[in-house]
Design a protein around this nucleic acid. Structure first.
Length: 221
DNA sequence: GACCAGGCACATC
DNA sequence: GATGTGCATGGT
């Protein structure tokens, strides 16, 4: 039912911002680490943490698996929440080595719903992080919801007041074709408009969605 | 100095 | 099941 509206928003954002080339990260493992580090955190801070890991030569499953947690925490310090994120990375790696011998390729063979469930069972990986990993690291067709998604589409009247993660995700899965590249680009574009215009204090002037019906509403998610 | 950032787990009611 | 809180750095 919302297909037309969703596509109009996508087209406007794509016309305005162009292709986003997501996820920023050179390897599958870097994407996964970035997904955990960026939880509630500005990406520029994550880049510094990742640079530290790269510089030390630790940005591999084995490298991080062997690194002591307190040493890891110091390296990812710029990303904020460094103690808890060090533990979360460790949880992921412990699981990866316990269950799959440290081989990410083994995860690639799993179906989308199985992979998602298994990721969610890892402490520190919630719905958004799991879906980011599925979509951006493993090219599985799933739409990633985040705070920007809720805010942008809440303001444009497409999301009811209190909505849960899966409820919002359903809107996109129902209205759109399950296409990896399309989901990739759409989410990245939503982050762009969120960063530039659709903030808690909106900067509607110059927003590519400015002339669409919208109003400031309480955060729906 | 206040506000914000690509969440999540856990406690409490 | 809903709501509140801790986690923390760095840019605007």
């Amino acid at each position: 039912m919302n297909r037309e509206k969703l596509l109009e928003i996508y087209n406007r954002l794509y016309t305005y911002y162009g292709p986003q080339h997501w996820w920023p990260g050179e390897t599958r493992f870097e994407i996964i680490v970035g997904a955990i580090l960026t939880q509630n955190t500005n990406w520029t801070n994550v880049e510094k943490a990742i640079a530290n890991l790269k510089k030390g030569g630790y940005l591999t499953p084995a490298g991080l698996h062997e690194l002591p947690a307190d040493r890891l925490a110091q390296l990812i310090r710029p990303a904020g929440y460094f103690n808890i994120k060090a533990r979360r990375l460790k949880c992921f790696l412990d699981w990866l080595f316990d269950e799959y011998d440290g081989l990410l390729e083994s995860l690639n063979g799993l179906g989308l719903s199985t992979l998602r469930e298994k990721l969610l069972a890892v402490k520190g990986i919630g719905p958004e992080t799991a879906d980011s990993i599925c979509l951006y690291a493993f090219q599985k067709p799933i739409f990633v919801v985040d705070a920007y998604t809720a805010r942008v589409f809440g303001r444009h009247g497409m999301i009811e007041a209190p909505s849960g993660y899966e409820q919002i995700q359903e809107i996109f899965h129902e209205g759109l074709d399950k296409d990896v590249q399309f989901f990739n680009e759409f989410h990245a574009l939503i982050v762009q408009v969120g960063k530039n215009h659709c903030k808690p204090k909106p900067i509607c002037n110059g927003c590519p969605l400015e002339d669409l019906p919208h109003q400031i509403v309480s955060e729906p998610y």
